[in-house]
Design a protein around this nucleic acid. Structure first.
Lengths: 146, 146
DNA sequence: GGTGGTATTTAGTTTGGGTAATGAGTTACG
DNA sequence: CGTAACTCATTACCCAAACTAAATACCACC
């Protein structure tokens, strides 16, 4: 690969990207759909929705969080009835985490509310800008998981 | 404005955007260029670099942080010699915050290091994907500040 | 069967933000 | 004028969500 990001424009883009991501993240933290669920808890539910089920360790790696943090998060989600823990079939060290029906319903509701919030925010963007952002969303997601 | 984000594709984009922003934010937190500077401190320096100087209150609004938090951040930056505090010419309640030459030098260095990190990450993207992201950066920034 | 490595958890700490209450300074209005 | 209401910054205290280090339980291989 050539020097993708070593020209001036791209250096500016990197700075811009970094500060925008941090700022938006801070603001999203306050825009919880369910007051009792932290952003990372939400993210874990989303991951489970995509992947079906996973072990705590796998979730920690996917969310780029340390294993002890994931233990706590999973415990909280279980206490709220959003997640089910079963023993791993092959390895008794591990556990299998999967989402409950309740979680699925909550995710659907939360999506609606998130859309409302971002929609209000997006009213400040014109059609082209939103289109740009929409195209970038999957790329950003890929980047975040690399 | 029409229903910009109420079709299916855009709903997916919103979800994608939200989780990507949160995840990337978490990862960026660990990729500090200067171990002793928090992400928000970096962000404040960036704002000052763009705006010249501002009062603590203005900075708090721009970073979407509460005033007491900004007081603490500014104090830390001053202790590190990255920021200068002067009395406000017209209003003795306020203060005027501006960055020092030292801060400017540090920002330049930090940009280099950030580029290196994001460059490694961006090796997993192809040219088109990076181009998409580069186009989206200013839009994302605008969105974050709305 | 012992030994080294892995998954999870427990315990304790750090960090980065928040809220409430205070003090100093300014503005508006009687 | 002068006082009441408001604003800016700060101080004091608190909380949430991550982290590291160490303990526990388990697997795998020699």
């Amino acid at each position: 690969m050539p020097d993708l990001i070593h020209d001036g424009d791209s250096a500016a883009a990197v700075s811009s990207l970094r500060s925008a991501v941090m700022l938006l993240g801070r603001r999203l933290k306050h825009q919880r759909v369910d007051e009792s669920l932290s952003p990372t808890e939400m993210s874990v539910l989303g991951t489970l929705a995509r992947c079906g089920s996973a072990t705590p360790g796998e979730l920690a790696r996917k969310e780029h969080v340390q294993p002890p943090s994931m233990t706590r998060i999973v415990a909280l989600l279980e206490a709220k009835g959003l997640v089910r823990l079963e023993p791993h079939p092959d390895d008794r060290r591990q556990k299998r985490v999967s989402q409950t029906e309740q979680a699925e319903a909550m995710l659907a509701e939360s999506r609606t509310k998130r859309n409302a919030w971002l929609s209000r925010l997006a009213e400040g963007l014109d059609e082209d800008e939103w289109e740009t952002l929409r195209a970038a969303a999957p790329v950003l997601e890929k980047l975040a998981h690399l």
